[in-house]
Design a protein around this nucleic acid. Structure first.
Lengths: 114, 114
DNA sequence: ACAGAATACTATGCAATGCAAAGTATTATT
DNA sequence: AATAATACTTTGCATTGCATAGTATTCTGT
């Protein structure tokens, strides 16, 4: 109740940041799919909504940051849409990490004011 | 040109983060006003738009995170709208810092995958 | 004295995204 | 047969960074 505006703020803080996280996961795993990424993020302490991740992957794909192909598991089960970093995505990731860390440093500076 | 989607991403990454920065500035300075905050952020490596900051201050005020009063400088000049942290804002700031640092840690975990 | 820059705040409208919610399918478990 | 788990899609809402334009005062250079 009293925390409503804080909850809203949490959602805002994830904007942009989630893209960085997903690119990082795909760099580490080389190839992964929605459901697995969802679990990986949760294990790293970032539980996010299905309705957040799937559209996100789609947007990143449309941006040309990812490539994608369908995989039907040989052991059976629901087909999975796998994603990998594209060349553009791989090139972007270091800049994004840089920006994120610069933000961290800017905040540290502000905390040291006066 | 090729960077358009990256520029958009930069704007997204600032959502939520800017609020944390402004709260931090106001904690350090105890009281400040729009134009000064603008310059403080720029000096910390965060140049932001007027049209971003003033509405942001207004929203934070409406959320009850800040208090505000007008000050006419004794040395003359344009009247300034000063802001300070409210009790709610002061209480919120540590939680926000915590969340931000947890995000940093989550990203570090992801970079260590496998 | 006048023009422009710097200071300082307000208001409007757009684009982008996290999330809730509901839906579709398949496979595994009980 | 029913439920849960796996796996992806789609719609609509609320929020926010930014571009842009507008208002007003003071200071600087010529």
């Amino acid at each position: 109740m009293e925390n409503t505006t804080y909850q809203k703020w949490l959602a805002q803080l994830r904007k942009g940041y989630l893209e960085l996280c997903v690119l990082t996961v795909l760099k580490q795993k080389e190839s992964s799919y929605g459901f697995e990424i969802l679990q990986t993020l949760e294990q790293a302490g970032l539980p996010i909504n299905e309705g957040t991740l799937y559209p996100l992957l789609n947007r990143m794909f449309k941006n040309g940051w990812l490539t994608s192909h369908w995989v039907t598991p040989s052991e059976g089960g629901h087909p999975r849409r796998h994603y990998q970093l594209s060349d553009d995505g791989a090139e972007l990731l270091p800049s994004m990490l840089d920006t994120f860390q610069n933000n961290q440093q800017a905040l540290d500076k502000l905390r040291d004011l006066k």
